[in-house]
Design a protein around this nucleic acid. Sequence first.
DNA 1: TACATACAC
DNA 2: AATGGTGTATGTA
Length: 446
Amino acid sequence: MGQELNPPNPSPDTASLVKRLAGPSTTKAGLAKDQSEINRIIAEASKGSKFYDNEKRKDKELTERINKILKQRDDARQGVDISQIEKSTDHTLDQLESHRDLSQVIVHVDMDAFYANVELLHNPELKGKPFGVGAGVLSTASYDARKYGVRSGMPGFIAKKLCPELILVNINFTRYQEMSDKVMDIFRRYDPNMLAAGCDEGYLNITAYCEEHNLDPQACVQEMRAFVHKETNLTVSAGIAPNKNKPNGQFYLPFDRESIKSFMQDLPIRRIPGVGRVNERLLDAIGIKTCGDIYTHRATLSLMDKQFGLQFLLRIHLGIASNVVEPGKREERKIASAKVHFRTFSTLSDRQQILNKLEEVAAELEDDTERNGWTGKTVTLKYKLNTYQVYTRAKSFDRWISTKKDDLLAVCHHLWQYHLLLLVFLIFIIYRSARNFCQAILCQLG
DNA sequence: TACATACAC
DNA sequence: AATGGTGTATGTA
């Protein structure tokens, strides 16, 4: 009956598209029972949207890129002595192995569902209930929500489809920052040089602490985690290893070559920091799913060093990473930005409306930079079309730029060009190399 | 330098 | 109806 209304033979979603739509953090906290059913629901909810079309386009582009790479691989392997290449790669591996340093005790600490657990402390009524933190897109999901497949980075309306009783809690960043400060202070007792990575995780070198207090690493970390719990009521997971490649959750990796090797053998390559969704697919295409697979395909990787980065992957295979922990310089702010969102408008007739919006953004940025004393040397105009395609247009100067709205607008007009006539739904203006205005004010433009 | 892409959190 | 913000690194031209 109504079937004629549907488009004939809608092409089925490819596995890669379904996975892409499910978002980047599917492999992270896989507490859900049936991920494929969850992915199906997400793909279904996305279907027909501009967002979906854009993801489909990107997926297709990646597939084409993969096909190109496979062809390159086949060409590269023609008429070369594979065993010779393997031999030379083995030599590189031996070199790397000979420099392995097992002397440092590195701990990766990660607060469990940080935002969600802070909210739980604040509002105990949420206990046992599925909830997400954030509006629009979720910053995190409680453990009870994760059971349904709800994850960080997921739009609220899709999360609601997966879990209709989901509660949405507004984000309270100052609350998390406060708790983060407390937790980090505890970590610093064990390593004053620790590296804070975001507000809920970090890396520590506890070698010296263990020595001075005559503690073995596991007892030391146990004690540290107990302090965190006692002083903040929050829980923290930790991985202990001879370097910074984090295992997962709460884990002690024995400090010998064989244990590390067998740990890496079946570890999915996606779990390595720096291997995201794209590299996962590229590597999968040439047969690499786990860190162990790197060795099997070392000849191909060696021939295609430029595409894949041989050294990077060989180090991953061996489980060798940096074991230097530094606090990370407290840098100056680099970017000041403002944005405006808009939805419904038409193309040509609303040129003036777009210009008005642009002016709005410029005014907002002027306000922010004047108030906080920032300026910069590059103006970046970033805009998203209603197709979700993102464009950036930038102009750099050799002097500090005036933060006056009209000066900003002048630069933006110069950058804007023909997209003025298109459907735009998001505009950013960004100052790059933002510097404190007080220091820069003397050399700013007219 | 300009721009795009990939990634992390 | 509806799919993030901020920052870094890197490749390419």
